[in-house]
Design a binder for these strands. Sequence first.
DNA 1: CGAAGGGCTATACGGTTATGTAATCGACTG
DNA 2: CAGTCGATTACATAACCGTATAGCCCTTCG
Lengths: 236, 236
Amino acid sequence: MTHPVGGPAFEDLTARARIRDAALRLFAERGIEGATIRDIAKEAGVSSGLVRHHFGSKHALRDACDAYMLERLMRIKEDAVLKGGMADPGMLLNLHPTVLLGYRYFARAMVDGSPGAASTFDDMVRLTQEWLAANDKDHVTADPQGYAAVLVAMQSGLLVMHDHVSRALGADILGPEGNLRLIGAIVDFYSHALLSPELAAQAHAALDQLRAQQPPTAAEPGSAGEGAGDDRGDSR
Amino acid sequence: MTHPVGGPAFEDLTARARIRDAALRLFAERGIEGATIRDIAKEAGVSSGLVRHHFGSKHALRDACDAYMLERLMRIKEDAVLKGGMADPGMLLNLHPTVLLGYRYFARAMVDGSPGAASTFDDMVRLTQEWLAANDKDHVTADPQGYAAVLVAMQSGLLVMHDHVSRALGADILGPEGNLRLIGAIVDFYSHALLSPELAAQAHAALDQLRAQQPPTAAEPGSAGEGAGDDRGDSR
DNA sequence: CGAAGGGCTATACGGTTATGTAATCGACTG
DNA sequence: CAGTCGATTACATAACCGTATAGCCCTTCG
């Protein structure tokens, strides 16, 4: 049993809240398949039957976690999202345990089939489109929806990859030192274009050509003589 | 049992290859916890004992999948990575089933504790740093490692979020129509800076100040009077 | 021919899982 | 006081899991 998610002391929480918090932690760490009801119950200091009593089923527990964490994060994030869209690098600079757990939880939930994570993604794409509509004076894109989806996916994806990034930087990006460094790198990344306008124009022209043709053929590169030895004669 | 990953017909593959291919598909779709040996065996048209015979254990099977798919993708991608680093948007434009499955597989593996995926990430960060060293004439960053980690994480993270992006765009981004559209959006994204130099300078100044101070305090925003009602009096 | 080895199946084993259920306890109300 | 309700535990159930194993069949080689 570990420390609570900010707020009241562990002993002061209802069993229901302790279960939910334990679930948030373990779902974030192991995903919904890897986290078991028994482990969640143990971490909450209750029996597994009580998990069932309060939440009914594992998926319902996950849905309750989605809803709870969404509501908490929305309260914190609402202003930032409405004001800056997803482009605001400062929005990551919040190291409160609840927020950090929320990041971890939703990062994992994004790939675990969570309905709450999916709807969060869709909401953020929509909000980013709205932000673009209000702010895109330079006409950076002819496809605001696609652009918004890419922006949201990359920003979310960065969090999903947090373990790897932390390893690469040698510090937890969801901790003080690593987070400052991460934000510095994000600022550099967002403040420079990676492609010149000329290359971009060429790429768009090529894409337009491809659209006018058949879709790219599915020939496997280097497929001549490849694979047969690997897939047929492979012996143990 | 579905079609093979390009190459020979299903019946022409050894059982070992069929098992490996089935594992790649199911691991990509469900993760290592969600995909069972029995389902993999069934999809490969063999008994579960044969999976054990050929691969020993589930984790060894996953390691074999890592190694196989890495080798296959490296062969395809080696030139592209060495030439353009991770900045080349055209590198996604490859719709061969093996490559697409590799994207799906590694996207999932990135969050499933796969050693192969982790080392792939680290390799790509290193390669991107080398590319920066050779190409960064504009001095876009004082922290090449951080920048490279962010760039790789965002690009990889975009793939990890492929289900969500596909839903937002209304087409599979790992299919012909969605992929073209995705690349168009990526081109737009990479060809424009999202932050002005002024804002970036301000952000860096603020980050330097924060580094000189204590790390950000962990006060919860809006914590006054919050949480007690939720966590104590919550009744079912 | 027999022996060896590889491919393969069917089944067993021990453990774990989510879900279901009966019983107990304490607090509250009429 | 008895009854009700909510919180909680302990245990049961059916299904599933990864791993282990014995045995059969076929091919190759000496």
